[in-house]
């Protein structure tokens, strides 16, 4: 394991090398893809990318939480959370050697 962290810059570089676009346009396209995925999820529509995985929006009911430090009860509002379910293909690749 190399334990690096990839960022937008690395995705931009990969797009730049894959398609004959400028680095600026490559960066803009990476952003557009992330924005489209985010926008779909914000509108409540799940996103499924084959052989990668699914981003699912789940609704959580409100409940009474507790501040673990003070023991004080605090209400947790109903909210929407995002979960990522990796595809079988991704799970297998990550565990293959």
């Amino acid at each position: 394991m190399s334990n690096k962290t990839l960022t937008r810059a690395d995705l931009t570089e990969a797009v730049y090398e894959e398609v004959g676009l400028s680095r600026n346009e490559s960066a803009a396209l990476v952003e557009q893809v992330l924005d489209e995925v985010s926008g779909s999820l914000i509108s409540g529509d799940n996103v499924k990318i084959s052989s990668f995985g699914s981003f699912l929006v789940r609704s959580k009911n409100g409940r009474i939480g507790r501040n673990p430090k003070t023991g004080e009860e605090v209400p947790i509002e109903p909210r929407r959370v995002l979960v990522f379910r990796p595809s079988q293909v991704m799970k297998e690749r990550i565990n293959a050697g």
Binding site: M1, K4, L6, T7, L34, I94
Partner: peptide
Amino acid sequence: ALVEGDRVEL
């Protein structure tokens, strides 16, 4: 990146 054990932070 994940196959390599790396993180991806966006």
